[in-house]
Amino acid sequence: MCLAIPMTVKKIEGSKAIVESMGVEKAVDIALTPDVKVNDKVIVHAGFIIEILDPEAAREIEATWDEYTTLLNQEQK
């Protein structure tokens, strides 16, 4: 229902942040995430940052899934 994409914060200027993804830059509003910092990965929807990505959680999740798939692929073989 809601198209939102991950982008990286390059600059913060007042109520706006310049975010970037794949070489594309866009000025977005930071009112919903006032704690946002430069280099944060964020989720952008309709010109607003709606949430900040948690890199620690992302790493843990990846590790878990790698373990899971390796295990299952072994089982299936």
């Binding site: 009112a31 919903l32 995430t33 006032p34 989720i43 709606i50 949430e51 990505l53 948690d54 890199p55 959680a57 992302a58 999740i61």
Partner: peptide, 16 residues
Amino acid sequence: YARVVRDDGNPKALEI
């Protein structure tokens, strides 16, 4: 989607 979604969501957004 825990890399983005927290247990309590985005309280600031909800407040607004």
